[in-house]
Design a protein around this nucleic acid. Structure first.
Length: 470
DNA sequence: TCTGGGGTCCTAGGACCC
DNA sequence: TCTGGGGTCCTAGGACCC
């Protein structure tokens, strides 16, 4: 029998302001606000000293200044935060490699295998979890000076809710079996996924606590909130959450946007901002070895209403010029005479991309990999319909040319490529192998995906690029 | 008080194909 | 003459999270 899951949710306390107070001792013990400092800025993080004055995340900075004029107002310094985050996440990975980082300051840890020998489900187990969590919190403080709060429970849901209740600088362990009873008295807003709109809708039906939500019939919840949301929140309200800790997740979109200090009607100015945004998006696509098929333009009007316009290309791109051309066309279709307060550009429908010439070169030089695992059955040909392997049936096999079985690329193996420097194989699967490069000609961490020839399964269509398969 | 920037997921309607 | 159903893809908008 599988052991009952043990999940930790680790959440750094007032992270941005805590880093600033560490770097600048004169800020310690004083109200500090990090966020947009311009006229239309909002608060990202308020230190606990600033929260006393009613300053909160997502509040307009202008309002924060009214409530707490003597606070220090700082623009965010993401590089400093990323550095600190790396140190913390590395410490957490020493506890378990089963770590899912959900943002710069938050992660889930799955301790189930780590504690499997400790008799999970017994009274001792609570002590064991407590010891692991307190040990991690202590090492984080020692290494960085930052405090973290931790919730520990049998699911992500309970762990997350309780790291919040543990704040600041605390630990809450929810004993197994007490999940639903613990949730019942809480306001529905405590449940992740219940925002202002959902809370208002529930409240209009007399549902203000998690217990009342749990008391609804499933079909009532679905009628109220829709299939997906209703089903999930109904399960959450009963303390049921089977979501697993996922260690790696592929990006689904890349975007950049900017809010103007005052609304803009000038198309020349909008065009130049558009090119700048597209350049930022293109830089990040190329740095990550990604390209995408769908170009998205986002605009926010003077009344805060938001418009999006998108177009999908035949082939994915990571080129600024292509993104700009399509985004400009989309912008041309909008009425901007009342002025825009925000303009954004994004690319979605991402895939790991390799240029055809690179593909040829590498396949000539290197032996084809063999299939490493059986779980990569979601290979999708670029021109294929259907979303699962079962929908499409077997991938067609061509009669020739089938290369002979040869030494495979294995995860961790070193690979040389003239244009991309040295790299190592990160993963492999049917129809593709992922190589992470780090070399003189290649930004650190660039990922390229190369098509492969599997002796048993050769795609009929030339797999020059590969659709994102998660 | 007047609302950032980066994302994810879901819904709904229409086009299109078989 | 009038009328199908299922499935996928695309587009637009909205809720939510940090």
């Amino acid at each position: 029998m599988r052991a009952r899951p043990v999940i930790l949710h680790l959440d750094l306390d007032a992270f941005f302001t805590a880093v600033e107070q560490l770097h600048k001792p004169s800020l310690r013990g004083k109200p500090v606000v990090v966020g947009g400092v311009g006229g239309r800025g909002v608060v990202s993080t308020a230190s606990y000293e600033a929260r006393v004055f009613g300053v909160r995340s997502a509040m307009p900075t202008a309002e924060a200044r009214r409530r707490c004029p003597h606070a220090a107002y700082l623009a965010p310094r993401f590089e400093a935060y990323r550095d600190a985050s790396h140190v913390v996440m590395d410490l957490a990975r020493e506890v378990t490699p089963l770590l899912e980082q959900v943002s710069i300051d938050e992660a889930y840890l799955d301790l189930t295998p780590t504690l499997a020998d400790g008799g999970v489900g017994t009274a001792d187990a609570v002590d064991a979890v407590t010891a692991v969590a307190e040990g991690l919190r202590a090492r984080i403080v020692a290494a960085t000076g930052l405090t973290a709060s931790v919730g520990a429970a049998t699911s992500k849901l309970l762990a997350k809710i309780h790291s919040d209740l543990a704040k600041p600088d605390g630990l809450v362990v929810v004993p197994p079996g007490e999940e639903a009873a613990t949730l019942a008295p809480m306001p529905v807003r405590a449940v992740p996924g219940v925002g202002p709109a959902t809370a208002a809708r529930l409240s209009a039906h007399g549902v203000t606590t998690v217990g009342r939500l749990a008391a609804l019939e499933l079909d009532e919840a679905v009628a109220l909130l829709g299939t997906a949301h209703g089903t999930q929140l109904h399960a959450f309200a009963h303390g049921v959450d089977d979501r697993e800790v996922v260690t790696e997740r592929a990006a689904k979109s890349v975007s950049a946007e900017t809010t103007f200090p005052s609304d803009v009607t000038d198309r020349v100015r909008l065009g130049s901002v558009l090119r700048d945004l597209a350049g930022r998006v293109g830089d990040r696509l190329r740095a990550d070895g990604l390209s995408g098929r769908t170009i998205v333009l986002k605009a926010r009007r003077h009344d805060f209403s938001t418009l999006t316009r998108s177009t999908t290309l035949d082939q994915p791109t990571d080129e600024d010029a292509v993104v700009v051309r399509h985004a400009e066309r989309l912008l041309g279709g909008l009425d901007v005479s009342d002025g825009l307060r925000l303009l954004g550009v994004g690319v979605s429908g991402l895939s790991l991309y390799v240029q055809p010439d690179l593909l040829d070169g590498l396949l000539d030089d290197a032996p084809p990999p063999v299939r490493e695992s059986d779980d990569d059955d979601d290979f999708v040909r670029p021109d294929a319909g259907g979303s699962t392997a079962a929908d499409r049936g077997p991938v067609p096999v061509v009669a020739e040319p089938v290369p002979p079985a040869a030494p495979s690329w294995r995860p961790g193996q070193d690979v040389e490529h003239a244009e991309h420097g040295a790299g190592w194989v990160q993963g492999s699967g049917v129809g593709r192998v992922t190589v992470r490069f780090e070399g003189p000609n290649t930004p650190v961490g660039r990922v390229r995906t190369f098509a492969t020839d599997d002796p048993d399964l050769v795609p009929a269509a030339p797999p020059v690029w590969h659709p994102d398969d998660g």
